[in-house]
Design a protein around this nucleic acid. Structure first.
Lengths: 342, 342
DNA sequence: CTGTTAGCGCCTTCAT
DNA sequence: ATGAAGGCGCTAACAG
């Protein structure tokens, strides 16, 4: 493990090949200004000596690391794992590597991570999923590299690039499905209302849908969870235990929605006959449950991919036409609701 | 975005603070050999100037990047996401960052990624989940940094550090549960038998369990999938359609197991009354299904955490007592099987 | 405790 | 098409 063999440098290769460092450097970097014969010779001695370019040295000299930082709430959430896959695929395609950091949505940790990433001279930064506060804006603006938000946006800095979906509208439409099924008592399994990215907007959409259709809004039918299965299960249990229990439940994410389905079933009731359930996100779980979950299909992979692509444009000084992208979502009506057509 | 402000270096700070670069460096790195007054002064001008250390330069000079490479099959698999979380947490604890790469188990891509990671001078490497071939051994042995395997091991190089579980034994015990429930016709939803890490060993365990108990092994009850939900669903459908259909199914991972549960239910049968189902891994999905899935609880997070911890020991030249760790697993008997006690 | 001095390995003009 | 030389920003002896 980790034998300290003498590291062989570009200089060694140059000497061995009878050329200068500059020439070796050119060959390594695919600079066309090298006579084919020379190139061949260098390439050969590189292989023979087992030379491996030192990207750190290159980074110092060229001021580019071909590495981008990714700050994400929690990779063990299916939603973010999917998104990260999109990021990594595109990064890989453009020959970037990603340094992945979990923030757990802790502001202090986020700051720390961003700082560390910038010290490591990443060529760009992707910030996912959390609220963008004044402190964020401060450190962002002090960065000398492009920063793109994914699955979130900045309420204040209207110029900050981002890629996301229209949360309010999607939640509104999802709720609308339940309304059009004829439900009057529609429960909400929400996230923290202090969460300006997911929790609040989706709650907002729910409320707006009710208002628009003149359906009474009942505070008691709103339960706030933490986006996890168990919180959905428990909250739904409470809802179903009420005398005027809801006949439909809109959960602001799929995990909670599946929890709700099971709460209904555990009570001996049927989904969607007795209670309709609508989710949000369309993580794999949505199609790994019975009945199949109706949900808002969020293009998770694409959000990551598009955000990363946008970042590469910044990093390469390409002209960018649209730096704030709102991706389309789609209602995926399956078996946990009764309406099958939009 | 990315304003090219003049980068301020350690030299600028030194000049401004009226000390030498060395002193600033000492302060930045927490070297105790600095008079408190001096330290304070330096710290102050650092803050005032907004100096941010350049980790790339530091890496070149110190030959340490405090970054480790992680090659993983696919972050969108719950199993690996969980594992990665363990890795990242420990990495973070020891002030390392991780460069995450998805290999999709493609050997060529793996080689490429490892090469790139080594060029980036990672201080160590974690290789997850795939087969270790001769080519792997070659590049591993050429690396000047420690490399540890997680959730896999090397059949040939008996010294290569790893952290995993006893796949065969676990599969054997899982199958044993089904046998002790009285089943004689036990189906297997396996992975590719060419996969020496998961597919084959778990198949092996299944077979051994049958043999030991004198239960007939029937080729027809063995279906190989790709570890995904749908492949489990489809394969189970086939099994259930047979005239001598199995009365119990052992799936070598949870996704396929849940697919099997649904295949049974979609057929109007009951789990576990008509068919028992046993999974493997204990990903969150196992407890987000009805009936709750009985499974082999693999300490995914711990595998990642322990592997990373082991790697830090190598990187810091700590004495390490055990460099090949076989973590314990646990049978988690829930509602998809009938046996409740071991 | 603090300063001086070499590099670390490579890129990048600038000559040739 | 190729070589020479000066950094990139920081760490690490080595003096003092």
């Amino acid at each position: 493990m980790g034998k300290k063999k003498e590291t062989i440098t570009i200089y060694d290769v140059a000497r061995e090949a009878g050329v200068s460092m500059a020439t070796v450097s050119r060959v390594v970097n695919g600079n066309p200004n090298v006579k084919p014969v020379t190139r061949k010779k260098v390439l050969e001695t590189i292989r023979r000596m087992g030379y491996r370019p030192n990207a750190v040295a290159r980074g110092l000299a060229s001021k580019k690391t071909t590495t981008v930082g990714v700050v994400i709430p929690d990779i063990s959430y299916a939603f973010f794992a999917e998104l990260t896959r999109g990021i990594e695929d595109i990064a890989n395609m453009y020959h970037y590597n990603i340094i992945l950091c979990n923030s757990d949505l802790k502001k202090e940790k986020e700051m720390q991570l961003i700082e560390a990433l910038l010290e490591k001279q990443v060529d760009g930064l992707l910030f996912l999923g959390g609220e963008v506060t004044e402190e964020h804006r401060e450190i962002f603006s002090g960065a000398q590299v492009p920063i793109v938000l994914a699955a979130t946006h900045d309420e204040v800095d209207k110029d900050r690039p981002y890629v996301t979906i229209d949360q309010v509208q999607a939640a509104k439409e999802a709720t609308g499905i339940l309304i059009r099924e004829g439900h009057k008592r529609i429960g909400l399994l929400g996230g923290p209302l202090t969460d300006p990215i997911i929790g609040f907007p989706r709650y907002q959409g729910y409320k707006e849908a009710l208002e628009e259709e003149g359906i009474p809004f009942n505070e008691n039918w709103v339960r706030l969870g933490n986006y996890r299965y168990n919180s959905g299960l428990e909250a739904a249990k409470e809802l179903l235990g009420m005398v005027d229990a809801p006949t439909a439940i809109f959960a602001v994410n799929d995990e909670m929605a599946v929890g709700a389905i099971h709460a209904v079933q555990d009570r001996g009731l049927d989904v969607p006959k007795d209670v309709s359930v609508m989710g949000f996100d369309n993580i794999p779980l949505a199609s790994q449950v019975r009945p199949l979950l109706s949900t808002v299909a969020v293009p998770m992979y694409d959000i990551g991919a598009v955000a990363m692509r946008l970042l590469t444009k910044y990093m390469n000084d390409e002209t960018i036409e649209e730096n704030q992208v709102v991706l389309p979502y789609r209602l995926e009506l399956a078996d946990s609701t009764r309406l099958k057509e939009l």
